Amino acid sequence: MLKAQIAQRLEAAFSQYGFAEASVSQLKTACDVSLRTLYKHYPSKELMIVAALNHRHQRYLTFLSAPSVNKGEARILAIFERLNDWMSEFAPHGCMSLSALAAFPENEEIKTAVAKHKDDVRILLGEQAMRPDLATALFILHEGVSSVWPIMGYSSIESVNGVIKQIMEQSKNA
């Protein structure tokens, strides 16, 4: 239980301080544990980042899965509305996974955590659309919105909604 609480607090701390700037001392304080306890559960800053990313990954998938709309086009549109809500509330500066990767581009554990997160989101989008063949296209739209949302805000969602409708309609007629 303590390990999960630490991961939750690490996520919040990295979200607040960033990855390169956060010191282990700041992380210890944010987690409200001793340095010994922090290192017992996560023996390096990189493993602390992986824990934060994995915690966020689970929260994000749960968050995206919340719309009560049936699967298909309406579900995907609802998921992109949820993406807007996520960006507004939890990621106003952009994707935390990509920020971690940018800060530690050579770290294999971080690369693996980010790759798993991105692949799981891609698969989720294909499943929710009931169109696994469109998973990659929908994922690229998702990533595009995540990247530009800090600059464009909700207008990025509005733009992508039209593209989603076109893709779904064209693929029906193909």
Rank of each mutant, 00 (worst) to 15 (best):
S34F: 08
S34E: 07
S34P: 06
L35W: 03
L35T: 08
L35D: 07
L35M: 07
T37Y: 05
L38S: 10
Y39G: 02
Y39I: 06
H41C: 07
H41Q: 11
Y42F: 15
S44V: 04
K45M: 08
E46I: 01
L47C: 01
M48A: 15
I49H: 00
I49R: 00
I49L: 03
V50C: 01
A51N: 05
A51S: 11
A51G: 14
A51P: 02
L53S: 03
L53G: 02
N54R: 13
N54E: 14
H55S: 07
R56C: 08
H57M: 09
Q58D: 12
Q58T: 07
Q58H: 09
Q58W: 03
R59G: 15
R59F: 15
R59S: 12
R59C: 10
R59V: 09
Y60G: 03
Y60K: 08
F63K: 04
F63A: 05
F63L: 10
L64N: 02
S65I: 03
S65L: 07
A66G: 04
A66W: 05
S68D: 15
V69S: 11
V69K: 12
N70E: 13
K71R: 15
E73H: 02
E73F: 01
E73N: 04
A74T: 10
A74G: 11
A74L: 11
A74C: 05
R75K: 15
I76M: 05
L77A: 10
L77R: 12
L77S: 10
L77Y: 06
A78C: 06
A78T: 06
I79G: 00
I79V: 14
F80C: 07
F80L: 08
E81I: 08
E81S: 14
E81H: 14
R82Q: 15
R82H: 13
N84C: 07
N84Q: 11
D85K: 09
D85M: 09
W86H: 11
M87E: 08
M87Q: 14
M87K: 06
S88D: 10
S88E: 10
S88F: 05
E89V: 10
E89D: 12
F90K: 09
A91G: 04
H93L: 09
G94S: 08
G94D: 05
G94K: 06
C95F: 02
C95H: 01
C95E: 05
C95R: 00
M96I: 13
M96Y: 01
S97A: 13
L98G: 08
L98E: 12
S99E: 13
S99G: 08
A102F: 05
A102H: 11
A103R: 00
A103P: 01
F104A: 00
F104N: 00
F104G: 00
P105F: 07
E106R: 09
N107L: 05
E108F: 06
E108P: 01
E109N: 14
K111D: 03
K111R: 15
A115E: 10
A115V: 03
K116M: 06
